[in-house]
Simulated assay, not measured.
Amino acid sequence: MRVMQSVQKIPGGMMVVPLLLGALINTIMPQALRIGNFTEALFVNGASTLIALFLLCAGSQINVRSFGVSFGKGFTLLTVKWIFGGAFGALIFYLAGGAEGLFLGLAPIAVIAAMTNSNGGLYVALAGQYGTSEDKAAYSVLAMNDGPLFTMLTLSVLGAVGLQGGFFSITAFIGVLLPILIGFILGNIDEDLRTFLGKGADMLIPFFAFALGMNISFAAIIEGGLPGIVLGVLVVLITGITGYWSFKIFKWNPLIGAAEGSTAGNAVATPAAIATASTAFAYNVELATVQVAASVVTTAILLPIFVGYLAKRIEKKNGKQDLVTSEE
C-alpha cells in the first residue's frame, strides 16, 4: 500500500489527514487514546513538545546570513493579520451596534478574537510543507498574536476598552523563540549537526498534526452553529488572501502568507479573558466562545485545503520551482 503517496495527493495532506483523523477519533471515541503513559503523551498531549522539536530542527536550517529575512516575514504576517483581521472585526463591531449586539448572528468579540489570532501549529506545518527554513522561523514573531493581546489592541483602538496589562508575557515569547534559537546555533556551528537535524523536521509534521486533531472536536462546529462556520470561512478568506498578496508584493512565497489564515485553539479562551477585563463583553461571552471554537475547527480543516489549492494553481501556471523561495 502506498499510503504516503496517496496522502500527499491531497492538498496539505501530510498535515490535514492526520489532523482530521485525530479530530474524528476525538469526536467519536475521545477516550480511545487517553489511556496514559507513552500513548497519551505522544498522540494526545504531544503537540507542544513535537512542535517545539520541529522548530528546533527548522531553526538549525537557518543560515546566519538570512535571519533578518525570517524576522521580516514574521513581522509582515503579524501586521497584516492584525490590520485586516482587526479592521473586519471593527466593522462587525459597529454593524452590531456595540459589544452586546449581534450582526448576522455573530458576536463582535468572537470575530475580533478569531481574526487576530492564528494557529501556530498549522502555520508551522504548512511552512514545513511549502516553505523554507526562513518561513518556519518566522513563527517566532507570528507567535506574538497567541492569546488576547491583539484582540485587546483592536478594542483599545476602537475605544471599547482600555489596553490591559498582563496579556502578553515576554517570558512566553522567549519560550517560543528559544527552541528555534538553539537549533539556529547548533546548525551554524556545525554543518553535520545541520544535516542531522534537518532530517527531523518533515517527519514530525504528521505526528503533531494528529496530536492537534486529538484536541479538536467536530461537535464544536455543531455547537457554534452556522455563524461560527461562516466566521471560520471568513478568517481563511480575509486573512489568508491578504497574507497571500502581502507576501506576493514582497516577492516572497505567497503560500506562506496565506498560511496565517487560521484561528488558534487558545483563541477560544479570549472572549472570557476580555469579559474579565470589561464587563461590556460578558453578555455574549458564551456565544462568542462557541463561535470561536467553531472557527478553530473550520480553519484547521479549510486552510490546508485552501493553501493546497493555491499551490496547485501556482504550479500549473508557473511551474513547481515557484512554490518556494530560494534559501541561502
Rank of each mutant, 00 (worst) to 15 (best):
M1R: 13
M1C: 07
V7R: 09
Q8N: 14
I10T: 11
M14R: 15
V17A: 08
L24P: 06
N26I: 09
A32S: 11
N37E: 15
N37W: 11
V44R: 02
L55K: 06
L56N: 08
L56E: 02
Q61P: 08
Q61E: 11
V64D: 05
R65G: 09
S66A: 13
V69L: 10
V69D: 04
K73V: 11
F75K: 06
L77C: 14
L77W: 00
L77Y: 01
F88R: 00
I92S: 00
I92Y: 00
G97I: 04
G98A: 07
E100P: 01
E100N: 05
L102E: 00
F103N: 04
L104Q: 03
L106S: 02
L106H: 03
P108A: 10
M115W: 06
T116E: 05
N117S: 15
S118T: 14
A127M: 14
G128I: 13
G128S: 12
T132V: 10
K136D: 08
A138Q: 09
Y139L: 14
V141G: 02
V141N: 00
V141Q: 01
L142M: 13
M144P: 02
N145D: 14
S156L: 12
G159V: 14
L163V: 14
Q164R: 12
Q164L: 05
F167I: 09
T171Q: 14
A172L: 14
F173C: 07
V176E: 02
L177Y: 04
L178G: 01
I185K: 09
G187S: 06
T195W: 13
G198S: 13
G198C: 08
A209F: 03
L212W: 00
L212P: 03
L212Y: 00
G213M: 02
M214K: 05
N215K: 11
N215Q: 10
I216L: 15
I216Y: 06
G228K: 04
V230D: 10
L231E: 03
L231S: 04
G232T: 13
L234V: 15
V235Q: 04
V235G: 04
T242N: 02
G243C: 02
Y244R: 13
S246L: 03
F250G: 04
W252N: 04
N253T: 15
N253I: 04
P254I: 00
L255W: 09
G257Y: 08
A258W: 04
E260N: 03
S262C: 03
T263N: 07
A264Y: 01
V268C: 07
A273R: 05
T276S: 13
S278G: 12
F281N: 03
F281M: 07
A282I: 06
N284P: 09
E286N: 10
A288G: 05
V290S: 01
V290G: 00
V292T: 06
A293S: 11
V296E: 01
V297P: 00
T299Q: 11
I305K: 05
V307L: 09
K312V: 07
K316D: 07
G319I: 13
K320R: 15
D322M: 12
L323V: 12
V324Y: 04
S326M: 13
